[in-house]
Structures are given as C-alpha cells and as structure tokens.
Amino acid sequence: MTDTAPASRLADIRSAIARAARLANRKAEEVSLIAVSKTHPPESIVPLLEAGQRVFGENRVQEAAEKWPALREHYEGIALHLVGQLQSNKAEDAARLFDAIHSVDRPSLVTSLARAMDKVGRRPACFVQVNIGDEPQKGGCPTAELPALLAVCREAELPVKGLMCIPPAEVEPAPYFALLAKLGRDHGLAGLSMGMSGDFETAVMIGATHVRVGTALFGARG
C-alpha cells in the first residue's frame, strides 16, 4: 500500500506557503520549497517525488551520494541542495552532486569551492550562511564579517545567489528573518534561504525565497 501521508503533508505545506505569500502580496511561485530529506531513506522520498516535489535538501555529502544518483535515474528535474555544514575537503564532491550549497560560511571554504567548481566544470548556486543571532555554538559567518566574506566570494567568482540563516531556537524568529532580508538588500542579494518546519510561514511573509522543510513533510525522525 502506498503511503499517502507525505503527499497530503506536501499539499498542506504548499497551501500554507501560498497563503503566507498572499498575505505578503507575493506570489507563491517566488518561494522554493526544499524538502529536507536528511536521514530519510529513498522509500520515504519516493512518495514526495511521485507527488511532484523536485527540490530536496541534504545535510551530508556522503549520505546524498548514497541516495540520490539512483533516484535521479528514475525521476527527472531533481534539484539537490546542501543545507548542512560543508567541510573543505568535501568541496569537490559537493560541487559534483549538488545544485545549490547553502552553507558557505568562511574564506577557506570559498577558496576550496571555487577550485572545486573549476575542476568539475559545475557551478552550483551558493548561499552565504549568516550566524544571524551571533551564537557561538552555531555555524555561519558573524554578521559583522559578512561584507568581508562577500568580498572574498566576489574575488573567487563564486556564484553567490543569496543569504541563509537559522535563527536562535525558542525565540520569535521574525526579527532575525527581517535582519537577513535587510542584509540581502544591503548587499544586492535576492535569495533568502530562511524558515524551517516551525516558522516557514513567517519567513515567507518576510521575504524568503527558499524554505527548508523536513519534519513537517516527513514526520519526526525515529
């Protein structure tokens, strides 16, 4: 028996995105839903593919390399986004496998990615991850260092399309999303990767172009 729950959840989330976009006088098509499939096996992903979802996110290069080549053989048009931290020594594998990388956060990674992209002949879209709450335990570029990191990206000719953030937990996310949107405007970057299962509607209303939704689509991980 086919599990209809993922398709039903997908429809609900798409409706919620459309509703939030409408409230903000935006078009739902301006928002890309990234289905974050980290830790979920192919059999959990297939129902979403069958329902028409084509943009997926993974946290780890190795896990994505194990799951997605076979799925891509059966389904056309898949776009794969790396939404987790990236080690510099995995830059070449990431450049081969992913269509977008959301966790560019330090000059050494910029250098590795630029070199890897030249080598493999692919240029995935890049988002600079901002540590929007300046939390010491979190990845991302400190907000004060963002201009310098973007300058490094430009010098390396990295294809930066926008900014990404994960706001602090257990607090109202809207001010942090608004800050990321302002930073994007200040630096001429249209892409805003922000909003996850618990706050994607707020993110859409504040200007998110990409929302990263896992649990609300797949259910809680075991």
Rank of each mutant, 00 (worst) to 15 (best):
D118Y: 09
F98Q: 05
T111K: 15
H74V: 01
L97T: 01
S103R: 04
P147M: 13
E73Y: 06
R122F: 11
V104E: 06
L150Q: 08
N131V: 02
K90D: 03
L158T: 00
G133Y: 10
G84Q: 09
L82N: 02
T111E: 15
E145D: 15
D118W: 03
V152T: 14
V120I: 03
L150K: 05
L86H: 08
A144K: 12
A91R: 06
T111F: 15
L113N: 01
P142H: 10
A148E: 14
P175E: 03
I101F: 13
P136Y: 06
I132Y: 10
A144V: 00
G77C: 07
A125N: 04
M164L: 01
Y176S: 02
F127A: 00
A95Y: 04
Q85C: 00
L82M: 06
Q137K: 14
D99T: 00
V128T: 03
E155T: 10
C153S: 08
L86C: 09
A169C: 00
E155M: 04
A144Y: 06
R115E: 12
G133N: 13
D105S: 05
L82D: 00
N131F: 03
M117H: 05
P142L: 08
H102R: 06
V130M: 08
C153Q: 08
K138T: 01
P167T: 03
P147E: 14
N89G: 01
P173R: 06
I166M: 15
L97Q: 07
Q87P: 08
T111W: 13
E170S: 11
P142R: 03
Q129V: 04
V130Y: 14
A144W: 05
M164P: 07
D93E: 13
Y176M: 07
L82A: 12
V128Q: 07
L149F: 11
A95F: 11
S103T: 05
D134K: 01
P136S: 09
E135C: 05
I132G: 10
A169H: 11
L80W: 06
M117Q: 13
I101Q: 15
L150F: 11
V110K: 07
V130G: 01
D105W: 09
A95S: 12
H102E: 11
M164F: 12
A144M: 09
V104K: 14
L109D: 11
V160M: 09
I132S: 05
M117I: 00
F177P: 02
D99E: 09
F177M: 01
D134I: 01
H102A: 07
A174T: 07
A79E: 15
Y176W: 11
C126T: 01
L109M: 09
R123A: 10
K161D: 10
D118T: 06
V160P: 05
K90F: 12
